[in-house]
Design a binder for these strands. Structure first.
Lengths: 103, 103
DNA sequence: TCGATATTTGAGCGCATATTCATATATTGG
DNA sequence: CCAATATATGAATATGCGCTCAAATATCGA
């Protein structure tokens, strides 16, 4: 059994927010992107290269993650350097990766 | 920064499994069902009543969760009593609920 | 055995969403 | 200023998914 949390029923707003968080982590591409960014900032092109994805696909997913405040970026010349912004989500990800790998 | 986990690149199989786990938690209905079941076993009809859902919708979601071994059931007469099976996923859920509620 | 209740199961519909493609915007070097 | 590079953005497409509805299965009580 896990630790105690909220009462019943769960507030609508809470459910929606929790759902948004897990949904963000529920896509293979976003998992790979976040995992890569957890090692340090990287440009869109670099991410695309490392993960064999089109720059456009990566950019779309980064926009998605940006809307949820899970990543941020800073400009460096003509490139955008992205990095992780949410430690809790990163913790969820790493925790689950470890659990899956040798759980 | 969060705790250290797997190297790069993440194995395909790992990514898929992690993705499946989070996807299961990425739906409001499944969140409500799991949250309810974390308080103890319950029948399909009882879940449906508590969450204002059709028994069929609940049953479909339970089948989904069953396939991922996140819940199990036992028969009690003509009803099926479902309960949680995966403590890690339950921990992820409660952890995130707490974080969202007063993070 | 028959009817009522509880649940499962499968098909179908409508909607969300991930990717691609084309185009727009911005920055740098020449 | 122009061409080249890097990224963003929007439309279109294709796939996935949650719900409903109808029908099947199973259990229990009369």
């Amino acid at each position: 059994m896990a630790t105690e949390s909220s009462g019943f029923p769960l507030p609508e707003e809470t459910v929606e927010e929790v759902s948004r968080t897990f949904k963000a982590l529920g896509d293979p591409t976003r998992i790979r992107i976040l995992h890569l960014l957890s090692r340090g900032e990287a440009s869109v092109g670099r991410i695309a290269g490392a993960l064999s994805l089109s720059p456009s696909a990566v950019s779309h997913q980064l926009a998605y993650l940006r809307n949820l405040r899970l990543v941020k970026y800073r400009r460096k010349g003509s490139t955008y350097l992205y990095s992780c912004l949410d430690d809790h989500v990163l913790a969820l990800l790493h925790q689950t990766i470890r659990h899956v790998e040798h759980g």
